[in-house]
Simulated assay, not measured.
Amino acid sequence: MRPATLLFAAGLASLMVAAAGCAPADETTAPAASAGSTSGAACAPAQLKTVAAGKLTIGTDDPVYPPWFTDNKPDNGQGFEGAVAAAVATKLGYAKDQVAWTRVTFNNAIAPGPKAFDFDINEFSITDERKQAVDFSAPYYDVTQAVIALKSSKIAGAKTLADLKGAKLGAQVGTTSYRAITEVVKPGAQPAVYNNNDDAKQALQNGQIDGLVVDLPTAFYITSAEIDAATIVGQLPQPSGTPEQFGLVLDKGSPLTGCVSQAVDALRADGTLQRLQQQWLSTTQGAPTLT
């Protein structure tokens, strides 16, 4: 996706309600706080062991896209994840000038090994497999996956998963969108894999794939603001009864995990997460679930 303008984001905001749902396998419910979970003064900036003393370093990819961020500027506090990150920083006691951003690719952020960030926000679904390499905060968003296609595509009118069995589908590498194809749709053709959604969207427009799988808010943005000839075919059902949830990624065993989870839980309890969903994320109306 190309970054949205603030004007467009503001226009969409009045029409949006939270997208909620469930999707691919291996997602978990909210993770338990780490053994280092603390509260009160112990979670104040002076006590937190951050990568840069006195600062909170937040990671995300480059580029980042609406509706999660705007203008590829994660530090402006715009877009759902930009606003969530800013709210978490504030809840932890960091002023704006005490927050630094660093760019880390999706796959590197969830790979084993020391991190150059305190937490990373980039639509990371919480999975048991990923939890072997990194920590996750409490979840900040429940999401579903969706299929988009050109209106002229043979799958544009699909009503069931069976209607997608003969389709060539694509998704970004390493994402639960890709896993939704292999574990939920299970098409006859091997899915196409792309380094990022820009490459995947180009393949869709070029007719190299019949459909593209992305999270639902992204699907709404692509079809409403980027590819006029595209439509949302439908949402994909969850396989196990557990919703797919996004969490902030931290270093494995990070001493910050408990405090960051506590901040996320507080933002949910005071209604901030719900308000940000209503402001930035698209409605699920018009996106039936494929069964």
Rank of each mutant, 00 (worst) to 15 (best):
T289I: 12
Q172F: 00
A230D: 00
I121C: 02
K91N: 09
Q279F: 01
G170C: 07
D71S: 10
Q205E: 12
S125V: 11
G113Y: 13
F69P: 06
A203K: 04
C43H: 10
A287M: 08
A87V: 01
G211I: 06
T28G: 13
A229G: 14
V17Q: 15
N122H: 08
D251T: 15
G54Q: 04
S125D: 13
A85R: 01
K91I: 01
P217V: 12
F124P: 00
C22R: 12
K165L: 07
P31N: 07
G11V: 14
V264E: 04
P187I: 05
G36W: 06
T38F: 12
T242D: 15
P24W: 03
Y141V: 08
D97H: 05
S125M: 06
T231S: 15
N122M: 11
K49A: 14
V51R: 03
Q145W: 06
Q145K: 13
Q98T: 06
I148R: 07
A219Q: 04
A13M: 02
K165R: 08
P3L: 04
G271Q: 02
S137L: 05
T218G: 09
D228I: 00
L276F: 07
D75I: 00
F220D: 12
A89G: 11
E27C: 13
L236E: 00
V193K: 07
N108Q: 15
